[in-house]
């Protein structure tokens, strides 16, 4: 197989006395959807935070596009083209969907007003509406605070934000957890489309049929360590569950 886009090895992360990651490895390739699964508390979200610059691993190496990298901040990960949908969404509930989509990347007006930092709200709103439309996110009001939207709508905004800006890799930590059937299918469609654009998509989900439906590969995390890897086409829900619970393990994972 080609060289991986992201290759994390033996990551360790301690929170006080809690060992969230105990030598976890993880691999993602361009143009593939890889699902990261594991029981509650297995360390999936912690791994994603370490790989998107939010948390610093205590040990281990991260290689991106063949080069070893350090990710001291979310900005450094974003500069590499890595975007993330966090499990807690990380949106500003008092700001409207367009403001959240452009959070930290606000567009400024052209000319002197822009030099003074004046925002181009109209253009941001227009582009946000276009992005939501393209991704099939239905939001009635683009200028209400997103805290007033439904949980699913908020989640959709967070997903839209990640795929709009991602250049090479998207982490999605349980992006469909709050979604209805229709909206869930839309997100899975979006994931496939992003993959077809050549990006790597990392999906975290507890929904095994969903995992098998959308992934190319599956990696299993258990107690802070990678315990198994599967090609989605060749595996079954039983196998995945076995790996997550420890009933089944692979030597070379």
């Amino acid at each position: 197989m080609a060289e991986p886009l992201l290759d994390a090895r033996d990551l360790v992360k301690n929170y006080g006395g809690v060992q969230a990651l105990r030598g976890a490895s993880f691999t993602a390739h361009e143009g593939e959807v890889v699902s990261l699964i594991g029981d509650n508390g297995a360390g999936k979200s912690t791994l994603v935070k370490c790989l998107s610059g939010v948390e610093q691993p205590d040990a281990g190496t991260i290689a991106f596009a063949g080069r070893e990298v350090a990710l001291p901040s979310p900005t450094s990960a974003r500069a590499l083209g890595i975007e993330t949908v966090y499990q807690d969404l990380a949106v500003a509930p008092d700001l409207d969907p367009a403001a959240n989509l452009f959070l930290g990347r606000e567009l400024r007006r052209a000319g002197p007003l822009g030099w003074l930092g004046v925002l181009d709200k109209k253009e941001m709103r227009r582009r946000a509406a276009a992005a939501f439309h393209e991704l099939g996110v239905s939001i009635q009001d683009v200028d209400v605070p997103i805290g007033a939207l439904s949980g699913g709508q908020r989640q959709s905004v967070a997903v839209a934000r990640s795929v709009v800006w991602a250049g090479r890799l998207v982490f999605m930590d349980e992006p469909t957890a709050a979604l209805g059937v229709v909206q869930r299918e839309r997100v899975l469609d979006v994931i496939r489309r992003v993959r077809d654009r050549g990006l790597a998509v990392v999906l975290i989900s507890h929904n095994m049929p969903e995992v098998l439906a959308v992934s190319d590969r599956v990696e299993v995390l258990r107690l802070g360590r990678r315990v198994a890897r599967f090609t989605a086409a060749d595996t079954t829900v039983e196998e995945l569950v076995g790996a997550m619970t420890g009933a089944l393990s692979q030597e070379d994972a």
Binding site: V54, P74, T75, R78, T84, A90, A92, P93, D94, L103
Partner: peptide, 12 residues
């Protein structure tokens, strides 16, 4: 003020 952690993760 709305969500400090979100602001930080957004690169602010």
């Amino acid at each position: 003020g709305s969500n400090e952690e979100a602001a930080r993760r957004a690169g602010i």
